[in-house]
Design a protein around this nucleic acid. Structure first.
Length: 567
RNA sequence: UGCCCCUUCGUCCAAUGGCAGGACAGCGGCCUUUGGAGCCGCGAAUCUUGGUUCGAAUCCAAGAGGGGCAACCA
C-alpha cells in the first residue's frame, strides 16, 4: 500500500511473514478467489488481548488485500458456550473498529459436516469406534510408542454407515460410539492417530437447542468450516501446528479443491498478565476480580473500562508484530502504546489524589478568582480550555511538600517558591503540625504579579505543581489500578502453587477523598482525562454519577522523579 | 526418549546470499507553566561448531537451548 497523498492516513502496518505470504499468494492468484480470512473464537469467555492480536491480523489482512474476513463462532462444544459470549465478541470486535463480512457459526454447518462424515465413511476414510474413552486413550500410544488399531477399525462400510445414522438418530447413549478418521495409528504425529470426528452428547446447544446429539470435534469442524467458507488463509496460534496435518488430510478427503491453508503464529504473552481464558474464568468465578469487565482484566471489556482506546490496542498489535517465535512482551511496551495514544487526544485537568491543605495567607478571605487554563499542552495540536477557581484555601498533593527535601526535590518546602499551575507563584512560609508531628497544613504567600504562572521579572521556579481550590473542588473516588500479578509470568509459578498465589494485593487501591477541579462535573461517564502529573484516568462508565464521581486510572504517567527518588 | 516448530540488542520486530536496522526499556544532555510530551546523543545482538560461497543472521550438517503435541476441549 503506497500512498502519495499528502493526506495519507494511518501508516501501513509493519510487514510480517504472514502478510508476505498472503501478498505472494495474492500476486500469483494461488487460490483462484479473493483473499479470505476469518476470526474464529469459541464463545466460551470474553475476548482478551490475545484475541485482539488475532483480530488485528485477520481483519488487517482483509483491509490490506481487499478481501473478506468472516466472524465465525467455533461453537462445537455445547457444554461451555453461551450467547452472552457471542454478544461480547461482536460488541468488542466492533469497538476495535472492525466489521466482519459475514457472521457465521460452525454449529450452522452441523448438517453439512454430518454429510461429509457419511461420505468419509462411504469412502472408507472414517469408521465408528465403539471403544470406551479410556480404551481409546490407551490404544493411542504415547509420544515415544506407536498406537494400536481399534478392534472396530475394520468394520464394514455398511455397518459403519448404519451405526453413524443411528448415532445421528439418537439410538445410543453418550460415549457409546465415536466417529474417527482412518489415518494411521502409528503416525509419529499423535494428532494423526485416527483423530475423533464426532461424539455423542445429549446436551442442549445455546444456538441449536436439542437439534443434535452429535457434535463435531475441533479437528473435524475447523478446517472444513474454513473450506466451506472459501477461506484462503487460516491463521491460528502455534499450539495448533500439529493439527495442521489433520486439517490438510480432511479438506482433501472431503474433496475441496484449492483448500485453505493453515499458518501458525505465536500467541501473545505479556508480562504480569494472564491470557488464558480458563484461568481468567477462574478469576471471575472465584471473585478475585469484579467480573469480566474488571478494569484489571486483560479482556477488551476490562481494558475499555480501564480507559484504554481501540487505537492504542491496534497500535500495540502493530508494534509487537507477528512472528513464529514464542515471545513475551514487556508491559512497558503496552503502556507506551496506551500513553502515546492518550497523550494526543485527552484534555488535562487537575486532581489532587492525597490532599494537603494550603492556606494563602495574603489572599483575601472569601475572594475567588477564575483562571483560564488550557486543556492541552503546547505540543498537542488540539485547542480548548476551561476556567478554574483560585481562592485562599487550596489542596495540593501531599507528595508535593517535604519539610526536609532531598537535593533533587523541586517541589514545595519551607522557604521554597513554586508555581501553582495556571495560578500563581507561592512561597511556603509556615507549617502546621498535629500532636504527633504530621504536617496537616501549609501556609504560603502568593505573588499577585505572577497571575497565570508567569513572573514579569523573569524569575524562575524549579517546580510546578497541581492544585485545586478547597471550596470548589469536587470530592471523588479514584480507583488506582496496577498489574494484577506480582511476577512477570503468572503461568510459571513454583510447584505446589498456582497463579492465584501471585495475585497482586495492591492491584486496586481505592482513594475516596481525592479532590478534582469542578470543570469535570457535567462530563459524560466514560470521559477520559490526563490528571496533570499523575496519570490518565477515565470516569467509570457504570459507577460514576453526578455528585459521586468515580475515576479509574488507566495508566500512570512516566515518572522520572520516582527513578531519582529511588537512588 | 518420538514427531514438529523456534533461536538477531535487556524486550518485541526487521534485514528474503551483499553496510545488522526500527520500536520499547536503559543511560546522558537539551527544552519545558506537567519531573508529562518533545528533541539530540550513547550503550546494546546474529546460540555453538563445522561446511558451501568472492561474500552467510540468511543456505547445508551436527550440537546446544527454548516451545508444542499423548481431552469424546479449542
Amino acid at each position: 500500500m503506497s500512498s502519495t497523498s499528502p493526506l495519507a492516513s494511518a501508516p501501513a502496518p509493519h510487514r510480517d511473514f504472514i502478510r508476505d505470504l498472503v501478498a505472494a499468494d495474492a500476486a500469483s492468484n494461488r487460490y483462484g478467489r479473493e483473499i479470505a480470512t476469518r476470526f474464529p473464537p469459541e464463545p466460551n469467555g470474553f475476548p482478551h488481548l490475545g484475541h485482539v492480536k488475532s483480530i488485528c491480523l485477520n481483519f488487517g489482512i482483509r483491509d490490506e488485500f481487499g478481501g473478506r474476513c468472516n466472524l465465525r463462532f467455533d461453537d462445537t462444544n455445547p457444554f461451555t458456550e453461551d450467547i452472552k459470549y457471542v454478544e461480547a465478541f461482536k460488541r468488542d470486535v466492533r469497538w476495535l473498529g472492525f466489521e466482519w463480512d459475514a457472521e457465521l457459526y460452525t454449529s450452522d454447518y452441523f448438517g453439512r459436516l454430518y454429510e461429509i462424515a457419511e461420505h468419509l465413511v462411504m469412502d472408507g476414510k472414517a469408521y465408528v469406534d465403539s471403544q470406551t474413552e479410556d480404551e481409546i486413550r490407551e490404544r493411542r500410544g504415547t509420544v515415544t510408542t506407536t498406537g494400536t488399531a481399534s478392534p472396530f477399525r475394520d468394520r464394514a462400510v455398511d455397518e459403519n454407515l448404519s451405526l453413524l445414522r443411528r448415532m445421528r438418530a439418537g439410538d445410543f447413549d453418550d460415549g457409546a460410539h465415536v466417529l474417527r478418521a482412518s489415518i494411521d495409528m502409528a503416525h509419529p504425529n499423535m494428532v494423526m492417530r485416527d483423530p475423533l470426528l464426532l461424539r455423542i452428547r445429549r446436551a442442549s446447544h445455546y444456538r441449536q437447542g436439542d437439534a443434535w446429539c452429535l457434535y463435531p470435534l475441533y479437528d473435524f469442524a475447523h478446517g472444513l468450516s474454513d473450506a466451506i467458507e472459501g477461506i484462503t488463509h487460516s491463521l491460528c496460534t502455534l499450539e495448533f501446528k500439529d493439527n495442521r496435518d489433520v486439517y490438510e488430510w480432511l479438506v482433501r478427503a472431503a474433496g475441496f479443491v484449492r483448500p485453505p491453508e493453515q499458518t501458525e503464529f505465536a500467541r501473545l504473552e505479556l508480562d504480569y498478565t494472564m491470557l488464558s481464558k480458563r484461568k481468567l474464568l477462574r478469576l471471575v468465578n472465584e471473585g478475585f476480580v469484579s467480573g469480566w469487565d474488571d478494569p484489571r482484566m486483560p479482556t477488551i471489556a476490562g481494558m475499555r473500562r480501564r480507559g484504554v482506546t481501540p487505537e492504542a490496542l491496534r497500535k500495540f498489535c502493530d508494534v509487537i508484530g507477528v512472528a513464529r517465535k514464542p515471545a513475551r512482551t514487556e508491559l512497558a511496551t503496552f503502556e507506551h502504546a496506551v500513553r502515546d495514544d492518550l497523550n494526543m487526544r485527552v484534555p488535562r485537568v487537575m486532581c489532587v489524589l492525597r490532599p494537603l491543605k494550603v492556606v494563602i495567607t495574603n489572599f483575601p478571605e472569601g475572594e475567588v478568582e477564575w483562571h483560564e487554563a488550557s486543556s492541552y499542552p503546547r505540543d498537542v495540536p488540539l485547542t480548548g480550555s476551561r476556567t478554574i477557581p483560585f481562592s485562599r484555601e487550596l489542596y495540593i498533593e501531599r507528595d508535593d511538600f517535604m519539610e526536609a527535601p532531598p537535593s533533587k526535590f523541586y517541589r514545595l518546602a519551607p522557604g521554597r517558591e513554586v508555581r501553582l499551575r495556571y495560578g500563581y507563584f507561592v512561597t511556603c512560609s509556615d507549617v502546621v503540625k498535629d500532636a504527633s508531628g504530621n504536617v496537616v497544613e501549609v501556609h504560603c504567600t502568593y505573588d499577585p504579579a505572577t497571575r497565570g504562572g508567569d513572573a514579569p521579572d523573569g524569575r524562575k521556579v524549579s517546580g510546578t505543581i497541581h492544585w485545586v481550590s478547597a471550596r470548589h473542588a469536587l470530592e471523588c473516588e479514584l480507583r488506582l489500578y496496577d498489574r494484577l500479578f506480582t511476577v512477570p509470568n503468572p503461568d510459571d509459578v513454583p510447584d505446589g502453587l498456582d497463579f492465584v498465589s501471585v495475585l497482586n494485593p495492591e492491584s486496586l487501591v481505592t482513594v475516596r477523598n481525592a479532590q478534582i477541579e469542578p470543570s469535570v462535573a457535567k462530563d459524560a461517564p466514560g470521559s477520559r482525562y490526563q490528571f496533570e502529573r499523575t496519570g490518565y484516568f477515565v470516569s467509570d462508565a457504570t459507577d460514576s454519577k453526578p455528585g459521586a464521581l468515580v475515576f479509574n486510572r488507566t495508566v500512570t504517567l512516566r515518572d522520572s522523579w520516582a527513578k531519582i527518588k529511588d537512588k
